[in-house]
Simulated assay, not measured.
Amino acid sequence: MGVFTYEQEITSSVPPAKMFKAAVLDADNLIPKVRPQAIKCVEVIQGDGGPGTIKKIHFGEGHKFKSMTHRIDAIDKEKFSLCYTVIDGDVLTDGVESICHELTVVPAPGGGSIYKNTSKYHTKGAEVCEEHVKGGKEDALATFKAIEAYVLAHPDAY
């Protein structure tokens, strides 16, 4: 088994606490509103939102994938961090056993924030397709920017 890691950072003018609430804590509700083509809905299969919670994400019409299931491994609302693992679904292409994501939202100069994501693809000896990673990065960026636009347009929402 191998591990392929990539990192992504996205800057925002939104302060960390607001961005974490919108992009992480309320993501299940907000993303289907601001990017329905990315995520149609999120179904909680087990848990209360804390560690051990299992969610099934149904992607929007025309999306490359149909669904994925992930498990929340850790969440720290004070440090604005979340760790979750994709454990099932068609996003786990041939040779990929699971994908672990470690997200943090940290302060940026000027009062904004930096959204940091480290993704670790656990493989069964196969290499990860670069197009798969590139598509995931582009989708994450578009979703983050849609959330940011929503928060900026609705300053009292979070």
Results as ranks from 00 to 15, higher is better:
93 T>V: 14
23 A>E: 04
89 G>Y: 13
96 V>T: 06
105 V>R: 00
154 H>E: 10
146 A>Q: 04
77 K>I: 13
77 K>S: 06
69 T>C: 11
152 L>Y: 02
35 R>P: 06
42 V>Q: 10
63 H>G: 09
103 L>P: 05
7 E>A: 10
29 N>A: 11
86 V>M: 05
10 I>D: 13
110 G>Q: 01
88 D>V: 11
43 E>K: 14
25 L>W: 10
15 P>H: 08
68 M>A: 02
25 L>Y: 12
108 A>H: 04
4 F>G: 03
34 V>D: 05
54 I>L: 08
105 V>Q: 00
79 K>H: 03
40 K>W: 09
132 H>V: 12
61 E>Q: 14
11 T>G: 05
60 G>Y: 14
94 D>I: 05
58 H>Y: 14
35 R>W: 13
36 P>W: 13
53 T>S: 13
42 V>K: 11
55 K>M: 04
133 V>H: 06
110 G>F: 00
68 M>L: 15
118 T>Q: 11
124 K>Q: 11
141 L>Y: 13
4 F>C: 08
109 P>D: 15
121 Y>S: 00
7 E>G: 13
40 K>F: 11
94 D>L: 12
44 V>H: 12
65 F>M: 08
87 I>P: 00
123 T>K: 09
124 K>G: 07
1 M>R: 09
90 D>K: 09
47 G>H: 08
49 G>L: 08
121 Y>E: 00
33 K>W: 07
14 V>F: 01
66 K>V: 09
28 D>T: 05
66 K>R: 13
70 H>I: 04
132 H>M: 07
97 E>W: 03
50 G>E: 12
112 G>P: 00
143 T>E: 15
69 T>I: 15
22 A>K: 04
141 L>I: 15
76 D>Q: 04
72 I>T: 10
29 N>W: 04
67 S>K: 13
86 V>N: 07
8 Q>N: 06
34 V>R: 03
42 V>D: 10
32 P>N: 00
121 Y>M: 01
64 K>I: 15
20 F>N: 05
145 K>C: 02
32 P>M: 00
27 A>G: 06
120 K>Q: 14
22 A>T: 02
151 V>S: 02
141 L>R: 14
16 P>W: 00
138 E>R: 10
67 S>H: 15
82 L>D: 03
47 G>E: 07
54 I>V: 14
147 I>F: 08
145 K>E: 09
157 A>G: 07
131 E>L: 07
103 L>Q: 10
